[in-house]
Amino acid sequence: MIMQISDVLIETEGEFIPRFSDSEKYVFAYHVNITNNGDQNIQILSRFWEITDANEKVIHVKGEGLVGKKPTIIPGESFEYTSSVAIATEIGFMSGSYHGITQDGELLSFPIDLFTLQIPNKVN
């Protein structure tokens, strides 16, 4: 059984990266901060992303770890990382989930709320 728990806070922010972008691809960094507000260590084992551009093209990305790591986050601590994605439009969206395990061996799933990728000042 995989539980969803509310003791994990996931904060996200997208950032346009103009120096790696052109008229055919728009590159965005996304910054993630995962805070463990629970009472057990949790280890993040894998991730799943759904990335949608303004043309409604959907890309699914899944794999082990986060930026090459499987971090263990102790209660009261956070893990931060930055990664990037390229899409074909000036605006897009990402959402997904992380999957992990507690120190007691309980499998967990953490939803990642939808957030926007956009060139600054494109949408008011």
Results as ranks from 00 to 15, higher is better:
Y30S: 04
Q43L: 12
A29V: 10
T82Q: 12
L117H: 02
G63R: 07
N124Q: 13
V8G: 01
N36H: 09
Q103P: 06
K62F: 13
I112L: 13
I112K: 01
F48V: 05
I73P: 02
P120R: 08
K62H: 15
L107R: 03
I44E: 06
T35L: 01
T52D: 00
S109L: 01
G105P: 05
L114Y: 10
E13V: 13
E50D: 00
Q43H: 02
N33L: 12
Q40L: 04
T52G: 00
Q118P: 04
I119H: 02
G76K: 02
E11L: 14
V58G: 02
L45D: 09
I87E: 02
E80S: 15
H60T: 09
S23L: 08
D39W: 03
I44H: 00
D53V: 09
H60Q: 09
T82S: 15
S78A: 12
V32D: 04
V27L: 10
T35M: 01
K122Q: 11
H31F: 11
D22T: 13
E15C: 07
I87N: 01
Y30F: 11
A29E: 09
I5L: 05
I87Y: 01
I87A: 00
Y30A: 03
L117Q: 02
V67D: 14
Q4L: 10
M94Y: 01
D7T: 12
G100V: 14
N36D: 11
V8Y: 03
V123E: 14
V61Y: 04
I5E: 05
D22V: 14
H31D: 09
M94F: 05
L45F: 06
I51G: 00
N121G: 06
E24T: 05
